[in-house]
Simulated assay, not measured.
Amino acid sequence: MNHVTVVICNYNYERYLAAAIDSALAQDYPATHVMVIDDGSTDGSRPIIEKYGTLISPIFKKNGGQVSAYNLAIEVLETEYVIFLDSDDVLYRSAVSEVMRCFMERDWAKVQFRLDVMNAAGALTGAYVPHSEPPHDCRKLLLDGWLYPSPPASGNAYRVSALRRVFPVPEEGVNRYGADFYAIYGVALSGPIATVPKSLGGYRVHNAGSATVSFANSEQMTRAPKAFNKRWTILRTIVRDRLQMELPPAFHDFSHEKAFFCSNIYHATFLTRWHWMLRDSGRYLHAIVANPFWGLKKKLGTLALSSLCLVPYSPLSDFVVRYIANPLARRRVAGR
């Protein structure tokens, strides 16, 4: 039986850490190992980790950020398969069994699966991510600059040998965080990916209100685009040097472009909204119209929704922005 390691990278998440560890230990796949890397937490995380004794492999390190934790894990891993579980997320009991069934069918570089969205208290919201399924071979799309639909960090299982073609990555500056960016997109350049078409875990969203615009945990809506651009530049260098492939200078991704859309349109005046849509929406519209992962119905629907931001009634425009940005707003409407 092939062995798998669930690596939990933690920093000051004592409130959620035990649930993450318990979910990893409860896997019905017998050859599952659990490693917890604590990135210099200053809260009560260490006693929680220590109470598990030999059930887990703990590593306590100086604080260096998520990328440093990934770099260390990938260096010391002794299994060929790994899931990086965020310390505020959980895996369902059959998660490892499901992904290993896929890995045994073909030489996948990565197997991804959906995550159910939870609120801060761990209650399911009815939403899940992602909503689109990529093709098995994303290499050509990435070489053309298209980021493929992927779940957040906890929804990905990797072949470690594929990760080692990309990692280690630089740890300083913007690269303290966003390690999953390099894992998700770098690994897809080294081999095909598979998708399990059902939810195998829970993704905790701390700002999970349907009335908010931001849906990301790790970075603010206005900061994420800048970070993504810098990470893409770093990934280009890594891919050129280690994989002998050339990524384009810019990338295309609806999630990235909608951050600009939301930050410029939300709570904006009528004239400001028109100005942005007429002069600065080119990349946003391209990410919709030319999106290789969307069907015609979804493209037309998103364009129609976006056009409602041009009406004079500001509350409608703000509702549209929330609906596009935050899947939880869609669940609220569907539940009425």
Results as ranks from 00 to 15, higher is better:
270 F>G: 03
283 R>V: 12
284 Y>G: 00
295 G>T: 04
301 G>A: 14
286 H>P: 02
268 A>G: 10
261 F>D: 02
272 T>K: 07
279 R>D: 05
290 A>M: 07
271 L>Q: 03
285 L>Q: 07
263 S>R: 09
288 I>R: 02
266 Y>E: 11
291 N>I: 04
265 I>T: 06
303 L>E: 09
276 W>G: 02
286 H>M: 14
285 L>N: 01
263 S>H: 03
255 S>E: 06
289 V>Q: 03
274 W>F: 10
250 A>M: 11
250 A>K: 14
285 L>F: 09
293 F>D: 04
291 N>Q: 06
286 H>V: 13
282 G>K: 12
284 Y>N: 13
301 G>D: 06
281 S>E: 09
293 F>A: 05
272 T>H: 04
257 E>Q: 14
294 W>K: 03
297 K>Y: 09
282 G>E: 06
298 K>W: 04
261 F>G: 06
273 R>S: 10
263 S>W: 08
300 L>G: 13
303 L>M: 12
276 W>Q: 12
258 K>I: 14
292 P>S: 12
288 I>D: 10
270 F>Q: 10
251 F>V: 15
290 A>D: 06
252 H>T: 13
283 R>A: 14
265 I>N: 04
287 A>I: 09
278 L>G: 00
291 N>A: 01
275 H>F: 07
280 D>N: 02
292 P>D: 09
276 W>Y: 05
261 F>M: 08
251 F>D: 14
276 W>A: 02
251 F>H: 15
258 K>A: 03
277 M>E: 04
269 T>Y: 02
265 I>Y: 00
278 L>P: 02
280 D>I: 03
280 D>G: 01
258 K>P: 00
275 H>C: 06
260 F>Q: 14
286 H>F: 09
262 C>W: 03
259 A>T: 09
298 K>A: 14
277 M>P: 00
268 A>R: 15
300 L>D: 08
297 K>G: 11
262 C>Y: 03
268 A>M: 14
283 R>T: 12
281 S>M: 12
293 F>K: 05
305 L>W: 01
284 Y>W: 13
302 T>D: 08
283 R>W: 07
297 K>E: 11
297 K>P: 09
290 A>V: 03
273 R>E: 01
300 L>K: 15
